[in-house]
Design a protein around this nucleic acid. Structure first.
Length: 1077
RNA sequence: GCCCAAAUGGUGGAAUUGGUAUACACGCACGACUCAAAAUCGUGUGGCGCAAGCCAUGAGAGUUCGAGUCUCUCUUUGGGCACCA
């Protein structure tokens, strides 16, 4: 009986594959479940990779059992840098390396027994596949969404190719970690920004049901901001610079302007710039800096003034100096900004360094400033008093918070002061003398609240010393009416950092700016006719004016850039473009697709900005499809993310020669119902794929606006030492070894059991042995359902009519519920030459006096005949569905008596055999309840990706079943069915051993029975003042008054209630009763 | 700096309309079987206390009859973004 997974698993994998059982695509309901297809690396799988695949397989099998047609495909994302780098390193052709790696991966995956339909396997490097990747590019090109650009791009000197923004990690090459340079190069770029708004807004569409963490990341990445562009004319010139700002309301505080080093104005104004040499040197040195350097040096801002050049603020008509500085980005907005040092931290730093004017243009409410000052004055007095009298005290979160509250509510500001309890009297006297009210009264202004504390509050807050400094730095140095943010910033940087108290800094922010500090709105000051307007009103009015005067306009900007789509590498899809001197860039005609990646002797990158393809003259030189003249092929290739941006469509119709996907099939299967993969793709693959899908929707190739309905991200599996699994740490666990030792089912089960699915958890090999033990227990339970050979059982049993009109058949300890209108017969008691039916009729008539006709017995005849086919199990038990016995109708003479189960057991008129039966039934009821609770929980847990708790629940059930002497086959079958998605091999094996001829995956998923879930007795917790004092077992239908009475009489409760007045009793049905005294 | 998520025994983790904190699993300890070991089975396992009981869900407050769960403040960890005007 010992569970030996090895042969069992191989056997069923073969059976499933040959029968194609999960490839039934003709059912009414469809479910498309998709894994992020792997890049087949040389290292093979480690145990972390399959976690997502196991989850989709559990869901697939669950959906199969629920009557769905399930599409669950797998393929290979095999183009790209890593494959090529691996090939170069190991001196094999990438195609050969990829083939070998795929073979390894496939073998590894097959060992898990996944339901993949390998007939639909796709490979992005297959010309029949990338033909359509190229086709999509051509369509983008036709619609003007693929264009050539010479803008500076990210260049990785180690990988010798350009990279998209999405390919960077902290400014480094995501692949090799090299610093990326900014180089202007000719590139193919896809106009992803044209879809920015739709990519953003459709995140809220009902067609999309993703985790917030992923949608938040995408929103962040897209980075939409609304503002205006404003033209600043350059004095003594026809030129102007255009700036972008979201805070036009601060424009009266603009004291200078800045352009990025790349900005063309520098070139255009050469003649006007007096310090041209210096400026050019600066631009040169700035261009040399990598992104990383620019970012790392952000604390120290550099720049240089363009001497002789001034720009005119269109609102004030006053000239301000112009700077070039690399803290302004060339590729965002217009590459130029207006600097408002009073309200922008970066401008402030720069202005400080170069001693530029700082002019406030926004202030918060004067009345609030008055209020703030009063609060600070009170705080100051208290601080001084405490210090002089050597009283230890701390201003709690209160001072900052409540001041902030005062600002926000504009009604009251309190000061919370926490002091030592024993010194309270001193404080009370002081406050009395001062005329403060020492109690909380939120309705009156500026009152003082002294908290009674058990001990000194020391964890946080600011001590008297800090408060004193705070006051000095605010009250004494600041003009409150037009307070100066600079002083605050100074304080914020120095003091807050020194005391390491973020709290203190927040106090300033809150007290003086409200939340958000520099960027917070207020009302305009020093802004001529706009003074007095709120920031919001001013932004509208100023934008209106700008547009009316033609000086500027409203504009939306995105952080997201267009997608740099070409790579200077060999191992990618050739871009299907032919360059012709006469016609320019011309798309390869559709009929000539695919443009096959040619064989090449040396596929190492050249580093020149050309791909190795440029060296193959016979491939490069071709004719222009438009004019027939000489043409040269585009030699750049596509990035790895091209093929993966639409692969989910190809699975639907993988062999279609005429289209990337057939329209009918596409409508039938799309969208992907469930997509599972790593969160690292949030801003790359998932963004690109959504972009392409929307484009394909626009050209009518697909019918949905979003590709992936539900997205779940899989948590990483870390190594046992808590680090990432990596060859470098030598802590990689190979799934092959685990499967070899514990079996695929144990592996599957363990990965689902380790913790919440989306969370990363450390691997534990002893944890695998735990689930293996569980599987063995389930397998071993078969012993308990095995009955004696049918020959040993004789005679018909007793029939009892149960509550709903059906009969319960009882023979020895075996019993079954028979549907109304049918009767059961146990095959063993036949006399010679008697058919089972005849025997049944005879025994029923003779022993029980029940009148039964031959035609009542159809079902039974079939069952009994099978008894003898399989000696180990009795098909008879297949009829056991459930036992629903609350009331029993017992035949008594000619009449019937209805009684409860409990009554029946104690009724002297009931014969011994029946009593035994009833006792078994009452005992079994508890497990019925547990069984059906388990069915319910496993069902909802699978639907909600809570696999760990589903498995826990099954473990609880199995532990309970193990304690039973006998288990009904029907119950066992239910258990095995709900376990089947997790441990399909073992479930199938048990199912076969139980005598079934069809696969368990052709069963239906069981429904839980609410009636059976009910317990007859429940435990009620008795609390006194919220603390548990007693637990009472009571009948499930007990009333509130009854339980109150019982609870109050309990000895344990009396100890606590004796002599006390009971103020209230709270009763929560079926859970608890709380006595409040 | 900004955005998101999290913090519960020795470990992974349970506990969702606020109602029995620590389910399930691992580990550990003891016992049974064994010449012995492994495997298996049984018992125990948050802390303090002889006990009654008290204390415990990162810290501190608040709301409530009752808080792991809700509110506020703070700390720490993980992930993402980062001079985006």
């Amino acid at each position: 009986m010992k569970y030996e997974p090895k042969n069992i698993e191989k056997k069923w994998q073969k059976v499933w594959e040959e029968s194609g059982i999960y490839k039934n695509y003709t059912r009414d309901k469809k479910f498309y479940t998709l894994d992020m297809f792997p890049y087949p690396s040389g290292a093979g799988l480690h145990v972390g990779h399959p976690k997502g695949y196991i989850a989709t397989d559990v869901i697939s099998r669950f959906k199969l059992l629920n009557g769905y047609s399930v599409l669950h495909p797998m393929g290979w994302d095999a183009f790209g840098l890593p494959a090529e780098n691996y090939a170069i390193k190991n001196k094999v052709h990438p195609r050969i390396a990829v083939e070998e790696n795929i073979a390894t991966f496939k073998k590894q995956l097959e060992a898990f027994g996944f339901t993949y339909d390998w007939d639909r396997e796709i490979n992005t490097t297959d010309p029949e596949y990338y033909k359509w990747t190229q086709w999509i590019f051509l369509k983008l090109f036709e619609k003007g969404l693929a264009y050539e650009s010479n803008e500076p791009v990210n260049w990785c000197p180690s990988c010798k190719t350009v990279l998209s923004n999405e390919d960077l990690e902290n400014g480094l090459c995501e692949r090799c970690g090299s610093e990326v340079e900014q180089k202007p190069m000719r590139q193919w770029v896809l106009k992803m920004t044209a879809y920015a708004d739709r990519l953003l807004y459709d995140l809220d569409s009902p067609e999309l049901d993703w985790e917030d963490s992923i949608t938040d990341q995408q929103r962040n990445w897209i980075g939409r901001s609304e503002g205006v562009t404003i033209k600043f004319p350059i004095s003594n010139s026809q030129e102007f610079i255009e700036v972008f700002t979201t805070r036009v309301d601060t424009i009266f505080g603009c004291t200078y302007c800045v352009v990025a080093p790349e900005h063309p104005v520098i070139e255009n104004l050469k003649s006007q710039i007096l310090n041209l040499k210096e400026v050019e040197d600066y631009v040169l040195s700035a261009n040399k800096k990598t992104n990383l350097e620019r970012a790392e040096l952000q604390k120290e801002k550099t720049g240089i003034r363009l001497e002789g050049v001034e720009v005119i603020n269109p609102f004030t008509q006053k000239a301000v100096p112009l700077f070039v500085a690399d803290y302004v980005l060339g590729n965002y907005g217009t590459g130029a900004v207006m600097a408002v040092p009073a309200h922008d931290e970066r401008d402030f730093e720069f202005a400080k360094k170069y001693d530029l004017a700082i002019k406030p243009a926004i202030a918060v409410d004067d009345a609030l400033n008055d209020q703030t000052r009063k609060i600070f004055e009170v705080a100051k007095e208290i601080a001084i008093f405490a210090k002089e009298n050597k009283l230890v005290a701390a201003f709690d979160g209160g001072i900052g918070l409540d001041i902030a509250m005062g600002m926000i509510t504009r009604n009251h500001g309190d000061i919370d002061l926490q002091v030592e309890k024993e010194k309270l009297e001193v404080w009370e006297k002081y406050f009395e003398d001062k005329g403060f009210v020492i109690k909380k009264n939120p309705d009156e202004r500026f009152e003082l609240y002294v908290a009674e504390l058990e001990s000194l509050h020391i964890d946080f807050g600011c001590y008297i010393d800090d408060v004193e400094k705070l006051i000095k730095n605010t009250i004494e140095n600041i003009e409150f009416t037009t307070f100066n943010p600079i002083e605050i910033l100074k304080y914020k940087k120095s003091e807050a950092e020194r005391t390491k108290s973020k709290r203190l800094k927040d106090i300033h922010d809150y007290a003086l700016f409200g939340e958000g500090s520099f960027v917070e709105d207020g009302y305009l000051i020093n802004s001529e006719k706009y003074s007095g307007l709120s920031s919001q009103e001013a932004r509208e009015k100023m934008a209106d004016w700008l547009e009316k005067e033609g000086i500027g306009k409203r504009k939306v900007n995105y952080k997201m850039r267009d997608w740099v789509y070409s790579r200077q590498r060999y191992w990618g899809e050739p871009i299907p473009i032919i360059h012709c001197e006469k016609c320019g860039a011309v798309g390869v005609p559709e009929s000539d697709l695919p443009v096959v990646l040619p064989e090449v002797e040396n596929y190492e990158p050249t580093g020149t900005g050309e791909s190795p393809l440029a060296n193959i003259a016979e491939w490069v030189n071709t004719t222009c499809p438009k004019c027939g003249g000489a043409g040269k092929r585009e030699t750049n290739t596509m990035p790895q993310w091209g093929g993966s941006s639409w692969y989910y469509l190809r699975y639907i119709d993988p062999k279609n020669n005429g289209a990337l996907v057939g329209k009918e099939l596409e409508k039938e299967w799309m969208p992907v119902d469930l997509y599972v993969g790593g969160a690292e793709h949030a801003t790359r693959h998932l963004l690109y794929a959504r972009f392409w899908h929307k484009f394909l929707f626009d050209i009518g190739a697909v019918s949905t606006i979003e590709p992936f309905k539900k997205l779940v991200h899989v948590g990483l599996i870390m190594a046992e030492d808590g680090r990432k699994m990596s060859k470098r740490w030598n802590n990689v666990i190979n799934p092959d070894d685990v499967i070899d030792e514990f079996g695929a089912d144990a592996m599957r089960l363990y990965e689902m059991f380790m913790g919440p699915f989306t969370q990363s958890v450390a691997w534990s090999t002893s944890g695998v042995s735990g689930v293996r033990r569980f599987l063995e227990k389930v397998y071993g339970l078969r012993k308990k359902v095995q009955i004696q050979s049918a020959d040993n059982i004789c005679g018909a049993g007793i029939f009892i009519e149960v509550g709903n009109g059906s009969y319960l058949f009882h023979e020895r300890d075996q019993f079954a519920k028979i549907a109304p209108g049918s009767v059961a017969f146990w095959g063993g008691g036949r006399e010679k030459n008697e058919t089972p039916s005849q025997c049944a009729i005879r025994e029923l008539n003779e022993e029980l006096g029940i009148d039964v006709q031959e035609n009542d017995l159809e079902t039974i005849a079939d069952m009994t005949s099978k008894n003898y086919v399989d000696g180990e199990f009795d098909r008879f038990f297949n009829l056991h569905t459930y036992l629903d016995i609350n009331n029993i109708t017992v035949k008594e003479g000619k009449g019937y008596v209805v009684m409860s189960l409990g009554e029946a057991v104690n009724n002297p008129k009931i014969d011994t055999r029946t009593k035994t039966l009833l006792e078994i039934i009452s005992k079994g009821k508890k497990n019925k309840s547990l069984l059906h609770k388990t069915i319910k929980k496993v069902t909802s847990d699978i639907e909600n990706f809570r696999f760990n708790t589903a498995i826990s629940q099954m473990m609880i059930l199995v532990n309970a079943m193990e304690k039973e002497e006998k288990i009904l086959v029907a119950d066992y079958e239910l258990l095995v069915t709900i376990l089947a998605p997790f441990a399909p091999h073992m479930a199938e094996e048990i199912w076969e051993k139980l005598g079934h001829e069809q696969s368990i995956f052709l069963q239906s998923w069981p429904q839980h029975d609410l009636e059976l879930m009910k317990e007859s007795e429940i435990e009620i917790v008795v609390q006194v003042n919220g603390k548990v004092r007693e637990r009472l077992m009571v009948a499930a239908d007990v009333t509130e008054d009854e339980i109150k009475e019982t609870a109050l009489e309990s000895e344990k409760v009396k100890v606590f209630t004796e002599g006390k007045e009971i103020r209230k009793i709270i009763f929560v049905p079926e859970k608890l009763i709380n006595i409040v005294i």
